[in-house]
Amino acid sequence: METYIKEASFLLFQFCFIIQLYYLINNYSRLAGYKPLEDLLPVNIPISVIISARNEAKNLQHYLPFILEQNYPDYEVVVINDCSHDSSDTVLEVFQEMYPHLKVVTITEHDRFKTGKKFALTLGIKAAKNEHLLFTDADCMPGSVNWITRMASNFTTPAQIVLGYAPYNRSKSFLNALIRFEAVKAAVNYFSAALNGDPYMGVGRNLAYTKTLFFSAKGFASHMHLMAGDDDLFVNQHATEDNTTIELHPEAFTYTDAKTNLSSWYKQKKRHFGVGKYYKNEHRRMLSIDAASGYLFYVLLIICLIFSFEPMLVLGIFIFRLILQIVIYSKTFKKLEANDLLWYLPGLDFCYYIYINTFGLLATFIKTTQWK
């Protein structure tokens, strides 16, 4: 019986290894070879930058000038002050006097009707005067004064959705490394999927789409009851091979600080993971198989080593996968400004698959009722 268990574990370990190879070679290698356009194309498409902000006075004061002072000829910035009870209104009033292209939409708290981010964004989209919309958050800083230009240049193609990248700032802690690694892995997944003609998500910290697409799709109506999903669910439902493109030039990144403690990170991830079960079936399967095979790969690796069942072969398979990861990830992580994480790849990859399966399970049972 014991021999049977060992053999079954080894066979399953090899099967998970093959699945992981498929994801690495078939899904991720194309992103490794992708080269963003270096030339800064002249573009003059009117753009509306939209930011939903709840109690973000400090962040607005610090980051909003970098958005209001972009090197772009024709744009407005629409900030939705969503039921804030800090000094956001005062900060925005001061900025409105300084920047005529800043528009403020104010939502006041209602005792019976509690609003979420999707409601705020919908009002901001309705208030926007331009067809092409660019979204970010109040705590995000553009990578350059050419952020809008880089993102807007993609609308010169037939694209209606532009997926941008929003990395977390680096700091010296394990939690920061894990959060950044998870964000990079997510980006590798959704950028690779888009390049392979099957886009399935984007992040609201750096995302663009057209007003026509938003209203023709009836906005967030199909998932308005969910606190999250204003970005990834919208993209999942409406992105296609023909209407979606990506922008990966460093000047088009938007940066934000990662959570610094476990409780705030848990609250954020609980909200994010809760919408995954509403993805299209094929996308749920794709993500679930990757998550499950990666988790089982490490669990079965440990089991095989503990029971000394073909230990040299098991270690050889592990090392081969690791080398292949480094070869493919080295180019990809460099594009995503995360080269430093490669030094800790085995540990981070192991923790990533443990945590992503744990959060995925918790999200099945936990309901989130607040967006901020």
Rank of each mutant, 00 (worst) to 15 (best):
301 L>S: 08
301 L>F: 15
302 I>A: 15
302 I>G: 12
303 I>L: 15
303 I>M: 14
304 C>G: 08
304 C>V: 06
304 C>K: 00
305 L>R: 03
305 L>A: 07
306 I>S: 03
307 F>T: 01
308 S>T: 02
309 F>D: 03
310 E>A: 02
310 E>F: 09
311 P>S: 03
312 M>G: 06
312 M>P: 02
314 V>H: 07
314 V>E: 12
314 V>K: 05
315 L>V: 05
315 L>Q: 04
316 G>I: 04
316 G>T: 01
316 G>R: 01
316 G>Q: 04
317 I>H: 13
317 I>V: 13
318 F>Y: 07
318 F>D: 02
318 F>L: 05
320 F>S: 00
320 F>C: 06
320 F>M: 04
320 F>L: 05
320 F>H: 02
321 R>S: 05
321 R>H: 09
322 L>Q: 12
322 L>V: 08
322 L>I: 08
322 L>Y: 14
323 I>L: 11
323 I>K: 01
323 I>P: 05
323 I>Q: 03
323 I>M: 11
323 I>V: 08
324 L>M: 07
324 L>N: 03
324 L>E: 00
324 L>Q: 03
325 Q>M: 07
325 Q>E: 04
326 I>K: 06
326 I>H: 09
326 I>Y: 08
326 I>N: 04
327 V>Q: 06
327 V>L: 13
328 I>S: 09
328 I>W: 14
328 I>L: 10
329 Y>F: 15
329 Y>D: 09
329 Y>H: 09
329 Y>R: 10
329 Y>I: 08
330 S>W: 13
331 K>V: 07
332 T>V: 15
332 T>A: 14
332 T>R: 14
332 T>K: 11
332 T>G: 11
